[in-house]
Amino acid sequence: MNFLEIIFRPASFDVIVQLAIMVLKVVVVVGVIMLHVTYATYFERKSIGHMQVRLGPMRTGPHGLLQPIADFVKLFFKEDIIPAAADKPIFYMAPVISIFAGMSSLAVIPFFNGFVIANINIGLLFVLAMSSLGAYGIVMAGWSSNSKYSFLGGLRSSAQVISYEIALGLSLVGVMMMAGSLNMTEIVKAQLAYPTGMFLFPQILGFFVFMVAAFAETNRTPFDLPEAESELVAGYFVEYSGMRFALFYVAEYIGMIVMSLIAITCFLGGWDGPFQIPYVPFAWVFIKLYILIFLFYWIRATVPRFRYDHLMSFGWKILIPLALFNVVLTGLLKTLNVI
């Protein structure tokens, strides 16, 4: 039997159609998220600009609306400088791994009821696994660049990411106990069945720990020590330029979007809102996403950077005990049938 016969048998034809739908879904999700990443940069510059009584980008297009596209074209045509002393294969792969780790988590996020790329039972565990992978991109970039700033930035960043990873993982245990599942769709459905419609209210402590840890995981202010401009220039990606730099930049924004989407799915009631929006089933996810992303920018414009020893002791001495306390508290309240 030759290859064509295998493809065109009715049973395998079904498989091909399913595969095509699958690929289409993936491409749509990646495309939409990339579009939002592009304009998240514009949104950030505009909101921070207005918070600092500036206008932000204004020249490229009306109100600077074409700025992200201009930035992309510029980065695309920039020379790709690879330091002579760099460890080349690792240097090449680091940004790709960063973006790979960021994007993979999108597979399990439900955008509306029934729309999820892979409805797997271990959804939440998969997300945590993928977010840990992001540390590899950082370490590899920092080490392979063979520059002092990159090396220090990579070290700091990896220590910070793994410290807050624990708080991040523990803060979600409360949600798992409330939902009784790791499947992201099941978690949202459990929230819709819950009186408040979301886990934010019984899990307010978990939400707080999760958001702080998410800020640290994505290296955003006030936890942007790895790229503290005034001392480390740009941290682990000092030596990266052009398209490789753009990939790190995109990975950071995807990380921010993914963390917001996890917060929405686990704490904020997913695709449901106070009222139904007709014809746009994913509207609430995106409304909540933009509120959370705005929170990232707002905090960046408001809070100064942590000192490194404060950052470490905050993660280990405050967030982890808080997250553990939240687990015990949730267990106690659930045993007593209060929540």
Binding site: F76, F77, A107, A118
Partner: peptide, 28 residues
Amino acid sequence: QYVPVLVLMLVALGFGLGALLVGSLVRP
């Protein structure tokens, strides 16, 4: 069930490598 995850991972890898490859054709 995990096939879509694999597809997404391939697309993510392809996005990263593709951007670098296409970039390498046009940049100085």
